[in-house]
Design a protein around this nucleic acid. Sequence first.
DNA 1: GCCAACGTTGGC
DNA 2: GCCAACGTTGGC
Length: 149
Amino acid sequence: MNYWLLKSEPDVFGIDHLQRFNETIWDGVRNYQARNFLQTARVGDLAFFYHSNVEPIGIAGLCKIVEANIADPSQFDPRSTYYDPKSNLAAPRWWTVKVQFVEKFANVISLETLRQQFQPDDLIIIRKGNRLSVTPVSEATALRLLEMA
DNA sequence: GCCAACGTTGGC
DNA sequence: GCCAACGTTGGC
């Protein structure tokens, strides 16, 4: 099993939304490196839910992948902000997963705490200038994060 | 294939 | 609101 970190702005979609909806298709990823990570995610993998651009910044909860290799439906929807006219049904360009709510942490693991506890090599999210919205997390790091939650 | 220009992200 | 960092675009 693998571990991931999914980044989102809670003003748009946060852990509270996921708790309310229980499941969601993680749509709108339009970065090839992030997409490639998503394509390797498998059912049963766990993903940390990171809140960006908000106070407090940090890991707010946990979810799990319940469906893998979904062609992101928003790429085909002209009304969607994620619409991609260069994609098509026969050869979808953007792939994603469906995630299910697992847990909202009692306290957000803050970015400051993450920086104190981990090295940039261990946790991509704390690397300077990182903008990837989907990143892998090693098992060792994941287990430590789960203990901190 | 290079790279300047541009738009976006996201912490501060 | 600022701005550094980054990815993408498009002219050449």
